[in-house]
Write a protein that binds this DNA or RNA. Structure first.
Lengths: 337, 337
DNA sequence: TATCTTCGCGCAAACGTTTGAGCATACACT
DNA sequence: AGTGTATGCTCAAACGTTTGCGCGAAGATA
C-alpha cells in the first residue's frame, strides 16, 4: 500500500486539503464542515489507508510528539530500568522515546543533545554525565528539560532523584543498630552528586552515633571492578571491618566476589548492605538487604514534569527527591565479638 | 541562542540558501563554490550556532536517520539487554533509536508500528509479539524490517536469532552426560518459536540417548510465576526428577525459589540448567550453568542487516541463527542414586 | 429589493530543506 | 567581433501539513 497524502484524499473526495485537515484534526465543528463531507473524508481515509505524516506536521507545528532520553550507560541494569520505566510512562502520553547512550562521556552527551535538537524532540529527560551544568542551563532555555537521578543544586534545572542522603543514612543506622562500629563505605565516582549525598548520609549516621572517628571511605567508581578491588585491599590489609556499605549494585557485586574469595561468610563474618534493587538480590545466599530506589516513581514524576513543561503548564521550580525504601533481608547480623 | 536557519545564514553572508545548503552537504566541489564563500559560510554557521533542521530535511529527503525498535516487554532483562545492544550498535551508524514497548500485545504492536511509520523512521527492528506474520509481511514491503529473537519460518522476513534448538540440545546433552535420565523441561509460551525450538532440542537430545520415553514438558509462559508453579507442582507430586531445564531466565528464578522452599539443594539433590545469561547467575550459590544467547552479536548483525536494507544494499534473503554458548558452572552434578 | 447572517468551504502562504534548471560574468580561441 | 566554455552562483518548485483570510450561496430580516 503506497503512502497517501491529504491531497490524495482531496482528489478522492473532491474536497480541499484544508477541509480534510480540519476534519482530521477534530475541528469539524469549529469550521462547520457538513456531516456529509466528514463522512466522505472518513471513508476516503480508510479506503486509501491514510496515515498522517508527522514529519510534515512537525515542520509546520514545531512539535514532534517525541521525547529524548539520555542515559550514561544503558548496560548498567539501573539505567536500563530507568529507561524501561521512562519509556513505559511516556507511552501513556503517546510519546515515543528516542534513547541515546552517552557512555558517561561529556563529548557523547553533547553530540547526543545535538542529535535530539536537530530532530526537534519536544523535550529531553537525561541523566547528566558532566559535572558542569553550564551547557544544560543553556539547553533548558530552548527545550523542556528534566534531569533524573543526577542533578546540580547550584542552578535551577528541574530534577527528580532519589533522596540518596536519607537512604544512606538509614542504611548506616541499620548497621549501627545491629551493633556495627566498623563500617566501610565503598563509594562511586566522588564527583557525582549521587555518591556525595550517600557518603554524607553515611557520615552523618556515624556522627549521630558518636562514631565519626570510625569513618572508612574508599573507592572511586560505580563499577564491579572498584567494589572488588577495594574490598580485596581492605581484607588483605587486615583492616578491622565488620560491615560493608556498597554504594551501588555494581560495587556490591565486586565486594561479595572479594568476600567469598577470602573465604568469609555473609552475614556471620561480615554484614553487607547495598544500594539499588534487583530481583536477583533475593536469590543470593543470603538474600541481600538493600536500599531500593523508587525508579518507577522517579520516572512517573519526571515524565509528568516534562509533559507539563512541554505544555507550558506551570511547573514548580527546582527538583524533587523521592524516598528510597529499605528492603530488609538477611545480609546483616550482629558483628562477631 | 535562537534557532537559525539556512536563510539566516543567507542574510548573514549575502549568499543564497542554495549555495549554503550545498556547502553544508559537502557538495562545494561538485557545484564549484569558491573557497572564499565556503569560508564565509562556515564562519556564519559558527557565529549563528546553526544546526540543521532534520525535520525539514526529512520532509524533503524522505529519510529521518532514525530507526525504531519494538520489544515485547522491556522490563524483562533479556529484552532490556537487546535494547541496550541495539541502541549501542545503531549509534555506531549515527542512528538514534526510538524504542517502544509492545507489552506482548498485538494491538500495542500495531499501534507502535503506526507510530513509527507516521514518524517516518528509516527502518524497524522488532521482536514480534504476534504469531501471525501477515501484517509484518505487508509492513516489510514498505519499510526495511528485521526481526530479532523471534521469527517466522514460513515467510521470508529477515531475522536474526539464537539457534535455540542447538542451545537446548546441548544443554540437555550436558545433563544426560552427567547421568541424568529424568529431566523436566519447563517451557515458555508454547506458541512462540523460541519455546518450540528449545523444546525440540530437548526432545531430540533425549531421543538420541534413547530416553524419549522420559520426556517431561510442562509450563506455558516465560515468567517467574510459571517456573515457580510448575516446579512446586512437580515436587509436591513427588515426581521422579533429577534435573530441571528452565527455558528462560525468568522461569529459572521461579524454579529455584520452589526448589529452595522444598528444602532441596542444587546440585546435590537436583541439577538445573537455565537459558539466558545474567551476571548475577555467577553469584548465586551455586553459580548456575546456563545457555547464553549471543545478544551482542545478534544486535550487531540485525543492525547491519537493517542498514543494508536501508541503503538498498543486497541482503541475503531469510534469516540467520547465531550459536549460543554454554556457560559451565556448578549447578549440574551427577544424580543421586 | 436591498442588506445582513449564517453556512460550508477554498486559496495560498508558510515551516526549512534540497535540487534541476538556468544565468551572468570572465576568459580563451578563432 | 563572434563563438565557446568554464566559473560561481541564484531561482523557484517541491516535500505534506496547518491556518489566517476570504468568498459565494442561501436564507433571514427590513
Amino acid at each position: 500500500m503506497k503512502k497517501s497524502t491529504l491531497s490524495d484524499i482531496s482528489s478522492y473526495t473532491g474536497l480541499s486539503v484544508t477541509t480534510i485537515s480540519r476534519v482530521l484534526n477534530g475541528k469539524s465543528e469549529q469550521f462547520r464542515i457538513s456531516r456529509e463531507s466528514q463522512q466522505k473524508i472518513m471513508d476516503a481515509v480508510r479506503a486509501l489507508n491514510y496515515r498522517p505524516n508527522y514529519v510534515a506536521q512537525s515542520l509546520r507545528n514545531c512539535t514532534t510528539r517525541t521525547i529524548g532520553l539520555l542515559v550514561p550507560c544503558i548496560d548498567n541494569p539501573f539505567f536500563a530500568n530507568i529507561a524501561s520505566a521512562v519509556i513505559g510512562e511516556a507511552h501513556k502520553y503517546s510519546y515515543p522515546v528516542m534513547v541515546i547512550d552517552t557512555h558517561e562521556s561529556v563529548k557523547d552527551e553533547d553530540e547526543a543533545i545535538n542529535t535530539l535538537l536537530s530532530r526537534n524532540v519536544d523535550g529531553i529527560i537525561m541523566v547528566p554525565s558532566s559535572d558542569d551544568p553550564a551547557r544544560l542551563v543553556e539547553l533548558a532555555r530552548e527545550k523542556p528539560l528534566v534531569l533524573i537521578d543526577r542533578y546540580f543544586d547550584q542552578c535551577d534545572l528541574s530534577y527528580v532523584a532519589t533522596d540518596n542522603y536519607k537512604g544512606a543514612l538509614e542504611a548506616t543506622e541499620l548497621l549501627i543498630k545491629a551493633g556495627h562500629t566498623d563500617i566501610m563505605c565503598i563509594q562511586g565516582t566522588p564527583q557525582s552528586i549521587t555518591s556525595q549525598r550517600r557518603v554524607q548520609g553515611y557520615l552523618d549516621a556515624l556522627e549521630k552515633a558518636g562514631l565519626e572517628g570510625n569513618a572508612m571511605i574508599c573507592g572511586n567508581e560505580f563499577s564491579t571492578q572498584n567494589g572488588y578491588v577495594e574490598t580485596k585491599l581492605a581484607l588483605n590489609m587486615g583492616k578491622k571491618i565488620s560491615a560493608i556499605f556498597a554504594l551501588s549494585n555494581t560495587i556490591f557485586l565486586g565486594a561479595i566476589k572479594a568476600i567469598s574469595e577470602h573465604g568469609l561468610k555473609v552475614p556471620e563474618d561480615l554484614s553487607i548492605v547495598s544500594f539499588d534493587d534487583n530481583i536477583y538480590l533475593d536469590f543470593l545466599n543470603p538474600p541481600v538487604t538493600r536500599i531500593s530506589q523508587p525508579i518507577e516513581s522517579i520516572s512517573i514524576v519526571a515524565v509528568k514534569m516534562l509533559m507539563d513543561r512541554i505544555k507550558d503548564n506551570p511547573v514548580p521550580a527546582g527538583g524533587i527527591l523521592l524516598q528510597p525504601s529499605i528492603v530488609l533481608r538477611q545480609s546483616v547480623a550482629a558483628p562477631r565479638r
